[in-house]
């Protein structure tokens, strides 16, 4: 495993390495979000080879995150760390993993199904992706705050909710456009557009689901 081994010295404490692992995990979530945006851009620009590269990268990072999560879980239990909030932290990591899974599935389905995105919808697809990714990035800020600056969690969570709502608005607009337009002749292609709009928006939905949990964990941790 590549990870942060190079940053660890012999004298780095166990607590420190675990911290580094967690930070690495959150950074993988960030990277997957940013890569999703890049991948969709490439797809919409018809640069399919570059899109596949980004999709493969997401796949790799998701796999790395999975391993990392398992290792963190093992160490939290084996080393009897944070007994009071261990369950919450593990719950958080597992739901964050759902965000990664959803991200991976978006690019995977684009790669498998190769949907024909009509030019008048490209802008909306890009905006929907960017907005969903904003929700993910804001979520990781909230998660990082949970570990270091508890009092700042709420402000980030509020933004996650905001971007999730925005994603819903764009998703609806996109779907309405797809079904109202005469440019798409086949009904199946309209349904296909709806399906992919929902898939992308699901990334924001998953982020919001983690945010809901995090809000409760933050209250519990608040002295």
């Amino acid at each position: 495993m590549k990870r942060t081994d190079e940053t660890r010295g012999i004298f780095t404490s166990r607590a420190k390495t675990l911290q580094l692992d967690m930070d690495r995990f959150f950074s993988l979530v960030d990277q997957c979000g940013l890569l999703l945006e890049e991948a969709i851009k490439k797809y919409l620009d018809n640069k399919l080879d570059e899109f596949e590269e980004k999709a493969a990268e997401i796949d790799k990072l998701e796999h790395e995150a999975d391993n990392l999560r398992r290792e963190i879980k093992h160490r939290l239990y084996a080393e009897m760390l944070i007994p009071d909030s261990r369950g919450d932290v593990l719950g958080l990591l597992e739901t964050l993993d759902n965000v990664l899974d959803t991200t991976k599935h978006v690019t995977m389905h684009f790669s498998i199904e190769k949907p024909e995105v009509f030019p008048f919808l490209k802008e909306d697809f890009l905006e929907l992706t960017q907005t969903s990714v904003k929700a993910v990035l804001e979520l990781t800020l909230a998660v990082r705050a949970f570990f270091r600056e508890l009092y700042r969690v709420t402000e980030h969570l509020d933004k996650v909710h905001f971007w999730e709502h925005e994603a819903d608005v764009i998703e609806e607009r996109l779907k309405r456009k797809a079904f109202a337009s005469d440019e798409i002749e086949l009904f199946s292609k309209r349904v296909h557009m709806r399906y992919f709009a929902e898939r992308i928006s699901h990334v924001a939905d998953e982020s919001e689901a983690v945010a809901e949990r995090l809000a409760v964990y933050a209250i519990k941790r608040n002295m």
């Binding site: 607590a15 420190k16 911290q19 967690m22 944070i82 270091r148 600056e149 508890l150 002295m223």
Partner: peptide, 21 residues
């Protein structure tokens, strides 16, 4: 003491894992 501890924790931004220790 509650306020003193809270003040310190809010200022120092100690990571949860380290705080546990």
């Amino acid at each position: 003491l509650f306020f003193v501890v809270r003040f310190i924790l809010n200022r120092l931004h100690i990571h949860l894992i380290r705080l546990d220790k």
